[in-house]
Nucleic acid binder design. Structure first.
Length: 218
DNA sequence: TAAGTGATGCAT
DNA sequence: TGCATCACTTAA
């Protein structure tokens, strides 16, 4: 368990649009007093600096300040009066971009995750951004955590077999982002279509004929 | 399909 | 201050 190696900071320095794709298959790891829990990321969304849907679109505020800091930190926010969501901050200090982690597979420490979140099916543990935060016990106190520090309470570890995992759970699909109204047409959601843990009852977006430029209809 | 929940941010 | 909005979830 101590052999999880955090992805380096440079991994997060490109645009969130690039990083969101590259994060698929790597491990989100939460340390608890009783051991680690987590699993491979299977769904992400990118929020860009010139993007009306991005929390940072109207400048620096108390909530979004971490997004303006250095790459590789966790941006955690509270939404809809009930839920937390976690993002990985991208780009250089002063440029606010981030990748929302929307779903992961509940692969390690499932019993710990079940202590944080009561569900019957494993899939319901982490198949959505609010769900995975509850399962991993992620709250405000983790806002700003260094995801590049394998000693941190929350970090992202390199999956040595990431290519194999993507082959197995792929293909990677791209769709529009979920639950937003502004800049809603941008193709900035990425997921591994073969994973059961992708959010949405029918893995939304997998077969809707869409407005995505360049998409070939089947 | 809709209501719950509360922080946020812009309009008064 | 007030109020609409919000990167969601659950129960029905």
């Amino acid at each position: 368990m101590t052999d999880f190696v955090a992805l380096p900071r440079w991994f997060y320095e490109p645009s969130a649009k690039i990083v969101a794709r590259r994060l698929l298959g790597h491990f989100l790891i939460r340390k608890t007093p009783n051991g680690p829990c987590g699993g491979p990321i299977v769904e992400t969304e990118a929020y860009l600096c010139d993007d009306a849907a991005c929390h940072a679109a109207r400048g620096l505020t108390a909530r979004n300040r971490v997004m303006f800091g250095p790459a590789g930190h966790g941006y955690v926010y509270f939404i809809y009066g009930n839920h937390f969501c976690v993002n990985a901050v991208c780009r250089a200090e002063g440029i606010a971009e981030a990748v929302l982690i929307r779903a992961m597979e509940a692969s390690f420490g499932e019993s710990l995750m079940r202590q944080h979140r009561t569900v019957s099916k494993s899939r319901d543990l982490t198949s959505g951004p609010g769900k995975l935060c509850e399962a991993l016990d992620i709250g405000r106190e983790l806002d700003g955590v260094d995801l590049c520090d394998s000693q941190a309470l929350l970090f992202i570890a390199r999956n040595p077999e990431v290519k194999k995992f993507r082959r197995k759970q792929g293909p990677t699909r791209t769709t529009t982002r979920i639950g937003i109204t502004r800049a809603a047409h941008l193709p900035l959601r990425f997921y591994l279509a073969g994973s059961e843990f992708v959010s949405g009852r029918e893995r939304r977006g997998s077969c809707t004929p869409s407005r995505i430029p360049g998409r070939i209809s089947l």
